[in-house]
Amino acid sequence: MIFPGATVRVTNVDDTYYRFEGLVQRVSDGKAAVLFENGNWDKLVTFRLSELEAVK
């Protein structure tokens, strides 16, 4: 189960963010908004829950 605050990895091989890890900001309607941070940039991207896996 994916909840806000969880760290997730993108599993969709066709996505630009494949294998990126980010922090879930919100979850609704089968989608999750994931925040990616890297140095001087932040990006908030929405994914279907089926495209994400929780990082242990």
Rank of each mutant, 00 (worst) to 15 (best):
V34Y: 01
Y17E: 02
Q25C: 14
K31Q: 09
F47G: 02
T16L: 13
T7F: 11
T46Q: 10
Q25M: 15
V45W: 04
V34G: 00
F20A: 09
K43Y: 10
A32C: 07
E37S: 14
L49C: 09
P4G: 03
K56W: 10
E51Y: 06
G5Q: 03
D29K: 08
D14H: 13
V34L: 03
G39N: 08
D15F: 04
D29H: 09
G39Y: 07
K56P: 13
N38L: 14
V8W: 00
L52C: 03
T46H: 10
N12S: 08
E53H: 05
S50H: 09
I2Y: 04
D42A: 15
G22Y: 02
S50N: 10
L44K: 05
V27S: 02
T7R: 15
S28M: 12
N40V: 11
A6Y: 08
K31F: 15
G39T: 09
E21S: 07
R26F: 14
K56A: 13
Q25T: 13
L44R: 04
A54I: 15
K56F: 12
N38A: 10
V10H: 01
L49F: 09
D15G: 05
F20E: 07
V8N: 01
V8G: 00
G39C: 13
A6S: 10
G5K: 03
A6T: 11
N38F: 15
E53I: 09
L44S: 07
G22I: 04
A54W: 12
A6N: 07
T16V: 14
E37L: 11
K31C: 13
A32P: 01
G5R: 02
L23W: 06
D29R: 08
V13D: 05
L44Y: 06
K43E: 12
E21G: 02
L44E: 13
R19I: 03
K43P: 05
S50E: 14
L23S: 07
V8C: 02
G30I: 03
G30C: 07
L44M: 08
V10Q: 01
P4A: 08
V10W: 01
F36C: 03
R19S: 12
L35I: 07
V24H: 00
E21P: 04
T11F: 04
N38H: 12
F20R: 13
V13E: 10
D15M: 05
R9C: 07
F36L: 10
T7C: 13
L49E: 07
T11H: 04
F47S: 03
Y18W: 06
A54T: 09
V34D: 00
V55Q: 04
R48Q: 14
A32E: 00
K31Y: 15
D29Y: 07
S28P: 01
K56L: 13
E37M: 13
R9F: 05
T11M: 09
N38K: 10
K56D: 13
N40I: 11
G39P: 07
L52A: 00
K31E: 11
R48G: 12
D42R: 15
T11C: 10
D14M: 11
G39L: 09
E37G: 11
E53C: 08
R19E: 09
V45T: 04
F36G: 01
D42I: 15
V13W: 06
R9E: 02
D29T: 05
V8Y: 00
E37R: 14
N12H: 05
D29A: 09
M1L: 13
V13C: 09
E53M: 08
R19L: 14
Q25F: 10
P4Q: 07
G30M: 05
E21C: 12
T46E: 15
G30H: 06
V45H: 06
E53V: 10
I2C: 05
L44W: 07
V27W: 02
F47H: 03
A32Q: 01
M1W: 10
R48N: 15
T11Y: 03
S28V: 10
A6Q: 11
L23P: 02
E51F: 06
E37K: 14
V55F: 06
T11N: 07
L35T: 05
L35F: 09
T11D: 03
R19A: 11
A54V: 15
G5V: 01
M1P: 12
I2D: 01
V8F: 00
P4V: 13
Q25P: 00
E21I: 15
M1H: 12
D42T: 15
S28E: 12
G30S: 06
F47T: 03
R48A: 14
F47C: 05
K56Y: 13
V27E: 02
L23N: 05
N38S: 11
N12Q: 06
F20V: 07
E51L: 04
Y17T: 02
F36S: 00
R26M: 13
R48Y: 15
S50Q: 09
E51T: 03
G22Q: 01
S50K: 05
V45P: 09
R48I: 10
V55S: 04
A33E: 15
